[in-house]
Amino acid sequence: MIKVTIDDIEIEVEEGTTILNAARMIGGDVVPPAMCYYSALPGTGGKCRTCLVEVAAGSTKDPRPMPKLMVSCSTQVMDGMIVKNKTSERVIENRAGVVEFLLANHPLDCPVCDQAGECDLQNLGFENGKEATRYEEERRTFEPIDIGDHIKLNMNRCILCYRCVHVANQLTDQRVHGALHRGDHTEISTYIEKAIDNDFSGNMIDVCPVGALTDRTARFKSRVWFLNPMNATCECTKCSGKAVVWMFGKEVYKVTTRQDKYGEVEQVDGKPQWLCDECRFDKKDVSKWTIEGARHIDRHSVISQGHYEKPNPLDNKPKNIK
């Protein structure tokens, strides 16, 4: 075990733990936001740069500070390392910068986005952003497309976290979508029209931190905060059958995996409880499910905090948005 101090709180962790995971063991404010890292998907992380932290001392052996801010999701702790997250002005300043970058080309269409209320970017902007964006240029735009019968892709909202690409690589045997082009022209796409249709592809929707990938089978228009999430199970040979069924009255609006407070799929004995597409997309009848009870949403989220109605940095739309 090795010792690391994050925002003045000391914790002992196993060797090889990342700063982010060490911070998650402490919990609360010392946890940096993570938009691209996803524990159940090896290989994710390092891209969004929201999880930047300051390393004030590298280790007991070499206590020099690290000159650059480090990505906590992909940097391993060392014995005696001292990390600053919320206590570092530099982190706060630069993270606000990252948020501004991520929002630069984001359509800010929260009022009509299905993800509103459970969008990590919305939360991120609320908690780490500045009042207004200085971005006055024209935004890049894409037409939303249906990729198969189950999933809709609205590329305008995508933050290129690559999580969905990892899902397709790791959970399915035929990846048909990926990152195309490069630079700020990069887009998630199938290139030629292809349906994404595979036993586990629906999990892409859950790992997507924004409303870029949404469930086409969700049955009617509703905002998440009008829905009642219920823990439910079903007998399934392909997947865990452990789901959250989002109810509106007696109707099933949509089915998702169970997620922890960091928006990641729950793991049981180190096994992520992914859902198969049949359970997710085809079981829209409440009789198919055994309801266990209400789901407590303890996620760091505007839904649970009920502050979505407050003035929000995202409402500050620049002029040139049509």
Partner: peptide, 12 residues
């Protein structure tokens, strides 16, 4: 290899 692996590269 998968066709998407070629598209990813060709567009890059």
């Amino acid at each position: 290899i998968k066709p998407i692996e070629v598209y990813e590269v060709a567009t890059f």
